[in-house]
Design a protein around this nucleic acid. Structure first.
Lengths: 332, 332
DNA sequence: CTGTTAGCGCGTTCAG
DNA sequence: CTGAACGCGCTAACAG
């Protein structure tokens, strides 16, 4: 922060204003003056201060990445999204500031205040739950935001998520194509928006491809390995005739696989299994997990793109659904 | 950014200066004045502008997290470190800005300029390679920085890494305790600093616990799954009598496991295997991978702590080695 | 086409 | 104990 616009102005023998104009591509400046200024600036290795610029322009070119549930060993789902967000935002010339809800909560401020204090131009929200008190704030605030994996839509808030309904449909269709007739569903936590949608897709698909729908075949895990184990045990105790199970997350599916091994159930011969997410583990467990892949990186990119369009072109926020993809491996 | 310090001053019937002093805990302000100011500020939901404050204080309370190799599906190693960095920095009142070397490179600016332009107070560097041209810059610049996994030490640059030498020693000692006598080593890419240290630890331990050291038993993968497969095949072709292998990463070890399965080699009966990292996969592969765990989250915390101490107390940077831990599972 | 004058919102001398 | 004045580095009117 040593060499300022003034130094450049002095060295080039012009006024500060002229330097600003020359460097920012304004029209009203002589071509040779501009060249000279640019030359001098390069010579001096001048870098405009983003801070000073933010102050006067009231725009920071800085976007917050608000992460709930940002914890050690947590969802590596977040990582790919984060990289997508960062890559895209960097392309558009925005910086990314990490914000965790915990931090805001500890400081007892609303997350909007948190962002405003930092002059963030907008926010991308990840990992937030339906029942989080921040949800209301996100929807109602005028701070431009895009939420991932939660269908919140308002004047200043859009969302990006996987097409969970169709994802669930693909899973069921695949199980049916493998000969399954009694298909169970281990859903994730009820407070997650995605759980509702996957349930809807499951039900629709079962009605369509199997005919009869029996809601006794739906149980709830909580997206965890242990939850998946427990839920599958519960399901099989209730309905031993089940020949295929769709898990709303790979982690739960892997828990289910462990239960099968312990209980002597052969996969996929006795029970076919399909997961959701396509986490790294999926290809490595034995048998390798058939699953519905989410386009994590692309979700990050889309969210970033939407936010930038809102910011730069004043576009209205929208809801974007990204297509999931069936990845066939060994469990179904 | 609507309500400013001036609004608070007016509402409280004092000057701007007094508000500043009252809110920042300065001594020279009347207790009742302070209370009134605080009250009014709360009433108005006033949040000081970090941008304005940064400009005048020449400190942004914002730290860059510079990530090389920041890509889709890449090292999830980074994620845990990142969370550690963020958590710790948040505690100390610092924000975290994501910076990727690619972004800087594309803009053809040195990363130091990149950080200075943004007024970052310091940087934590991850994933950088020994042969990266930025290394020189990191060491020589006056921008306070802490590097992870690369032993760079200078006036303004410290580092945090796992004690790789001892990690390798633990691995060898464990293999020996399991009866191995001819121990091979699949090292990672040579350009990684950690590779050298792991090799050193390996050699020292073999000399100590086995007696004879044969450098024909050292081969190089490149930290990838396929690299591990290839390297193990090469090693066994060269020295079929090998009865234990230490891999410098879990991913390579898992590649090795796949090779073993394909080649009909029983693990751990015919060949004992120890990995390095303790990635999530390690517990889930079959047989489950015995490995040396790196304290990823803690590395992030330590790096952040060191940087803050440098910034706030003017402490000299140092080199911190964090202890790895042997996690015994099924492969050795 | 260029320079002068005003702030952006805040912390900090330095007088009172 | 308090306030007026100044400046952080930069852009944006408004002249000339």
């Amino acid at each position: 922060m040593r060499v300022t616009i003034r130094d450049v102005a002095r060295a080039a023998g012009v006024s500060v204003t002229t330097v600003s104009r020359a460097l920012n591509g304004a029209q009203d400046v002589g071509e040779e003056t501009r060249q000279r200024v640019i030359e001098v600036a390069k010579q001096l290795n001048y870098r405009p201060s983003h801070v000073a610029r933010s102050l006067v322009l009231r725009k920071s070119q800085n976007i917050g990445l608000l992460v709930s549930d940002f914890r050690k060993g947590g969802h590596h789902f977040l990582y790919d999204v984060l990289v997508g967000v960062h890559d895209t935002l960097a392309e558009y010339g925005y910086d990314v500031t990490l914000v965790s809800t915990d931090t805001a909560r500890q400081q007892l401020v609303s997350y909007v205040d948190f962002c405003r204090a930092r002059g963030l131009d907008g926010v991308i929200v990840m990992g937030i739950r339906l029942d989080d008190p921040y949800v209301e704030e996100v929807v109602e605030s005028t701070l431009p935001s895009v939420v991932i994996d939660l269908p919140l839509l308002s004047r200043h808030c859009g969302y990006v998520m996987t097409d969970n309904v169709n994802g669930a449909r693909y899973a069921v269709r695949h199980l049916v194509s493998r000969g399954c007739r009694r298909i169970g569903f281990v859903n994730g936590a009820a407070h997650a928006a995605v759980s509702r949608e996957r349930l809807r897709g499951f039900e629709e698909a079962v009605r369509q491809y199997v005919g009869v729908y029996d809601d006794r075949l739906v149980v709830y895990g909580d997206f965890t390995l242990e939850g998946g184990q427990r839920a599958l045990a519960e399901l099989l105790a209730r309905a031993p005739e089940v020949d295929g199970v769709f898990f709303a997350s790979d982690l739960m599916a892997i828990g289910g696989l462990q239960h099968c091994r312990a209980a002597g159930i052969r996969v996929p011969e006795d029970l076919a299994v399909v997961g959701f997410d396509d986490i790294d583990l999926a290809r490595f467990v034995t048998p390798a997990l058939t699953t519905i892949a989410q386009p994590r990186y692309e979700m990050g990119c889309e969210a970033a793109k939407m936010l930038v369009h809102m910011l730069q072109k004043g576009e209205m926020p929208s809801g974007t659904l990204l297509p999931p993809q069936l990845v066939v491996r060994e469990t179904a």
